[in-house]
Design a protein around this nucleic acid. Structure first.
Lengths: 151, 151
DNA sequence: TCCTTATCGATGCAATTGCATCTATATGAA
DNA sequence: TTCATATAGATGCAATTGCATCGATAAGGA
């Protein structure tokens, strides 16, 4: 494995990607704060749990999905539990683990976050590029993903 | 101003952008850590200061360029100063301010970070997309930037 | 069964970040 | 000049994060 120097095009795209992603996150977090809502990470977790339905998810499954470190998930779940947005249930066939399920209050909070988050996406992405361009962007980004995604 | 619901394409592109940017940062930070090197933020600042040359930069100029909060720049500069990578000079025509200049040791550190950072960019972006695709990606991202950049 | 190793989730502690505010200097109007 | 306001940069304190590790249970081989 040889250490390579990156192509100029790669450096340019990298720089744009870093800057844009940080700007978008920052603006969205600001909008959430302005609305007295919790940060994006809470949404991610509530979203995954909502998708998972009544069966809930094990914390380690959440770790895979949301791209947060294990200890961050552990602590975030503690906060969500304290706030009554999720509930932790013992799981029968694995004495180490638990299952985490979203509560009605959690669904409601998720909905309220989405009102702001979704508007932010619409404003920051939807309004800037056409549907075809967004598809193209998603396609290119998909190939940078790990694992890469064709579609 | 009406709250809008985002288009499906926008949501998909958003999701990819968030995931990919976090993955790329994480992998790059890991590579830097593995090499016993300081984090990306250090590179950003050292890079800007290297570009600025002997004249250096005022901290507030750095704040604009690197997309870090003012207090983070202040503290990062303190660390860089302690490590001898930059030097803080009083500035004659503004008693509140200072000028920050990169030192030879700072240039050397920047070079060593780049050896890893650049290789990471080459591997994670350059190897995944063609030059034309990278240009296309940069173009699309440029339009999401604030302010938008055509080229 | 017993022992070693792996996995799940939590946590102590140090470092970093965010927020609010502070000090000091500069600017500009009266 | 004088005072009010704005700007540059630093910092106290609380919250969050990262790192290392822990305790508990599982899994698998001898």
């Amino acid at each position: 494995m040889t250490k390579k120097s990156p192509a100029a095009e790669a450096v340019k795209a990298w720089g744009r990607l870093m800057r844009v992603s940080r700007q978008l996150v920052e603006k969205t977090e600001d909008a959430l704060k302005a609305g007295g809502l919790p940060p994006l990470a809470w949404y991610d977790v509530l979203h995954e749990l909502a998708e998972a339905g009544e069966g809930g998810l094990r914390p380690f499954e959440l770790v895979d999905r949301v791209l947060l470190a294990q200890y961050n998930v552990s602590r975030l779940l503690t906060r969500l539990d304290v706030d009554g947005l999720v509930e932790k249930l013992p799981v029968s066939d694995d004495g180490r683990g638990q299952t985490v399920r979203i509560t009605p209050a959690g669904r409601e909070t998720r909905r309220r976050i989405w009102a702001v988050y979704g508007a932010s996406i619409a404003e920051l992405m939807g309004d800037k590029l056409s549907a075809a361009e967004l598809e193209m962007l998603a396609g290119l980004l998909g190939r940078l993903r790990d694992p890469p995604i064709g579609d």
